[in-house]
Amino acid sequence: MQVSEEQLLHIANLACIDLDKNEIDSYLENLQDILTFAEKVNGVSTEGLDETIGANDKFNVFRKDEIVHFSDTEALLQNAPSKDRGMFNIPKVIQ
């Protein structure tokens, strides 16, 4: 499958990544190479096979719905790039 610059920019936008001119050129080439290689999966017959949805056969793992308190708010907030009175700070969202 041929990847166009337009497609690449659309995908990058979905992934919230901004690419500069150099990145666009090299990623276009890399992506093309890698996808061509990835198409080798088409050489395997998978008729009648289900998709693997996990590496082991566990399904619907339940636990008791109990509240576990995490009290170390300070430790959580210490990693916030911007905080204010015990809350994460972001730019104004509603104008």
Binding site: A38, V41, V44, T46, L49, E51, T52
Partner: peptide, 15 residues
């Protein structure tokens, strides 16, 4: 074409 097919190939490899 890619993800779903790869997950089936994964089953084939496990088999």
């Amino acid at each position: 074409a890619y993800y779903k097919k790869a997950q089936k190939v994964r089953t084939a490899i496990t088999n």
